[in-house]
Design a protein around this nucleic acid. Structure first.
Length: 151
DNA sequence: GCCAACGTTGGC
DNA sequence: GCCAACGTTGGC
């Protein structure tokens, strides 16, 4: 089982939206690295920190888990979708995604706070200029952050 | 709203 | 296959 961090803008689809919907298809990912993580590594049961980006206080706000392994993203075939990709075909779909299930909300662990902890210094999401919307989290980092949430 | 950092595109 | 131009991300 693996651990992840997934970013989402609360104005677009935040943790409360996931809590309301219970599960959601993680569509619209148009970055090859992020797609490859979903396609090649994510398995049902994998756990993910839910991270709010592009907002007043960016940071981790909850936990989700993979509820379905990767399958083709329907939005790439819809000409009216902003995620439409005219180079993708149903025979050979370019974009895949998993489904996520809501697990729970957590106390906010802000980006600022994450940066303050030496054991988390290697986290991909903290790397300078990082823009990847899906990044792996080490088990040790996962445990450490869970510990921060209990304080 | 600014802008640095980064990924992608496309001309050559 | 290089790389300049462009578009997007996301913290601030």
């Amino acid at each position: 089982m693996r651990y992840w961090l997934i970013k989402s803008e609360p104005d677009v689809y935040g943790i409360d939206d996931l809590a309301r919907d219970s599960t959601t298809p993680w569509t619209g990912v148009r970055n090859y690295q992020a797609r490859n993580f979903m396609r090649d590594q994510m398995k049902p049961g994998d756990q993910a920190f839910y991270y709010h980006s592009n907002c007043e206080t960016p940071g981790i706000v909850g936990i989700a888990e993979v509820s379905r392994a990767a399958y083709p993203d329907a939005t790439q075939f819809d000409p009216r979708s902003k995620y439409y990709d005219d180079k993708s075909t149903t025979e050979n779909p370019r974009w895949l995604h998993v489904d996520f299930r809501f697990v729970r909300k957590t106390p906010l662990i802000s980006l600022d706070e994450l940066r303050r902890h030496q054991p988390l210094a290697g986290m991909r999401v903290l790397a300078r200029g990082n823009r990847l919307s899906i990044t792996p989290v080490d088990p040790d980092e996962w445990k450490y952050i869970l510990g921060l949430m209990k304080k």
